[in-house]
Design a protein around this nucleic acid. Structure first.
Length: 483
RNA sequence: UCCCCCUUAGCUCAGUUGGUUAGAGCGGCUGACUGUUAAUCAGUAGGUCCUUGGUUCGAGCCCAAGAGGGGGAGCCA
């Protein structure tokens, strides 16, 4: 059957197709039958809503009707008619039904009722067939598109940075090694150590933890670029905010200082949120209701202060709070939980790293809005961040979101060759390993900045999902690489 | 990696002080029903009580170890 003959359900529900005969294909959500008529709710993923198929008694063989069960895939030919029922404007009066794939009702795990997210995580290969995950994946696509649209509109170039790299000097965490050695007997050198000179790439390689360093190379030629690719971290972190494989968006801009970068980050996030509100209305309304229902079963203090839609609206309309690390320390030092010793880690001296309890206090209690903290102490940040005039802070910034924590990390990069090499030396990073990176500082160096947005963290905010494993189709985490 | 919690039917969960044959709702199946919306009503099948070991006359329940899952911390995006 030719593809052109098939009509997507979204076009039937939203379009003006009354009276026309169409072919629809999709999967059965529920079937309800009574003496004279059978109703089938059909979904094809093009939209949250189902198309109601109406089968008048006798028009379709008993045998075919019997094999139409929840989860079966159908091709239905019928006429689009005005619905007699109340739940929908139009429905499809079936003339012919072909069952493309049966789903044994005794074994098909999805039921026409709500499942726990934990159970759906175990059957992640089937969960796209649920309303919740259909909505999440449609929104995820819309956000991917909006990312490219935002940067394209601003004249940024998308750069594909390498996934296999020999650089692990960024210090962003444990890496996954890439090798094609026979693990039983890897070649060894005279010193008895594994000889990576004989490996596929002639050196030790790993999966990338970030495209930033390569992104800088491109920015220092093309001015404004961004990457949007997978990152891999072998950290042993088991939380609802971490994945071993996640996607990151990393813009890098020549001639931007930190202030320009914070402006861009804020504009970017607000653009994405507005795009979702405008283009994913139906899916967001569903997730909003889902979150509200979820909150009903929780204690008052565990409920979200704003509904999902309210918090999206809030971010779309309000500026983020911007404070320096030093100001943050002052606020925290004078805060109630610090004075009453409610913090597990009390804030005393300047220079301490902020714990998540502190970040949450600032975002959720003190400011009640997204917060950008900038000008961090140099010794708690990465080597490539630009040292400020005071000599003890760096031009770094983190964007903190309610409920999620750090969603963006960025900085102005150290463009001065001497300062950069000096710092690398202090941090034990070998200049020889990063000669290609240092060359940008030797030849036509320029002020530049960038940031990284964790795409799944952002998706958690947009969808209101608490566990990051529910906003990526196939989550990879410690001890788990199913499907 | 650390701390806390959980694991009983396909799913969500009850299960009293350790005591006879382990329950409910939903889902499935069978039937009824003149248009249903996660339909409704009636009936029915369905169990390695996570695994292993221990205590006991007797363990779903107590103890130990392990596995899996969830929440939090650290690290980070």
């Amino acid at each position: 059957m030719s593809k052109s003959k098939r009509t997507k359900i979204i076009d039937i529900l939203n379009g003006d197709q009354l009276g026309s005969t169409v072919v629809v294909k999709g999967w059965v959500r529920t079937k309800r039958d009574s003496k004279n008529v059978v109703f089938i709710a059909l979904n094809d993923g093009s939209v949250m809503r189902n198309l109601q198929i109406v089968v008048d008694n006798g028009s379709i063989s008993e045998e075919v009707l019997a094999s139409i069960t929840t989860g079966a895939s159908l091709s239905v030919t019928g006429e689009v008619i005005a619905s007699e029922g109340k739940g929908q404007a139009v429905e499809l009066s079936a003339q012919a039904i072909q069952v493309l794939g049966e789903a044994d009702p005794e074994k098909y795990p999805l039921q026409p009722k709500r499942h726990s997210l934990e159970f759906l995580r175990e059957i992640a290969h089937l969960r796209p067939r649920t309303n919740t995950f259909g909505a999440i994946y449609r929104i995820r696509h819309a956000m991917i598109f909006a990312v490219h649209q935002f940067f394209t509109n601003k004249g940024f170039l998308n750069i594909h940075t390498p996934i296999i790299t020999a650089s692990d000097a960024e210090g962003a965490g444990e890496t996954f090694m890439v090798t094609n050695f026979d693990m039983e007997k890897p070649p060894k050198g005279a010193d008895g150590q594994i000889d990576f000179n004989q490996d596929f790439f002639g050196k030790k390689t790993n999966l990338t933890v970030s495209g930033q360093l390569e992104g800088e190379l491109a920015a220092l030629a093309l001015s404004d670029i961004y990457t949007f690719g997978p990152c891999f971290r072998a950290e042993n972190s088991n939380t609802s905010r971490h994945l071993a494989e996640f996607w990151m968006i990393e813009p890098e801009m020549a001639f931007y200082d930190l202030k320009d970068t914070m402006d861009l980050a804020e504009e970017f996030v607000r653009y994405l949120v507005k795009y979702a509100l405008q283009h994913c209305e139906e899916d967001l309304a569903f997730l909003n209701k889902r979150a509200e229902d979820e909150d009903k079963n929780k204690k008052q203090e565990d409920r979200r202060p704003m509904s999902l839609l309210e918090s999206l609206q809030f971010v779309a309309e309000h500026d983020f709070e911007r404070i320096t690390y030093t100001e943050a320390i002052q606020i925290l030092r004078n805060s109630k939980p610090n004075k009453k010793k409610r913090f597990q880690f009390l804030i005393e001296d300047w220079g301490a790293d902020l714990q998540s309890e502190h970040e949450r206090y600032l975002v959720e209690k003190h400011f009640k809005k997204p917060v950008i903290i900038y000008d961090y102490p140099a010794n708690i940040k990465a080597f490539y961040m630009r040292v400020n005039e005071d000599g003890k802070t760096v031009a770094a910034m983190d964007v903190l979101f309610p409920g999620i924590g750090e969603i963006i990390g960025g900085s102005q990069r150290e463009e001065r060759y001497d300062q950069l090499t000096h710092k690398m030396e202090n941090m034990g990073i070998h200049a020889a390993d990063l000669q290609w990176y240092l060359d940008t500082r030797r030849f036509g160096t320029a002020p530049h900045s960038g940031f990284g947005l964790g795409f799944e963290r952002f998706m958690q905010f947009i969808t209101g999902m608490h566990n990051i494993r529910d906003v990526i189709p196939f989550p990879r985490a410690r001890g788990s690489a199913e499907f």
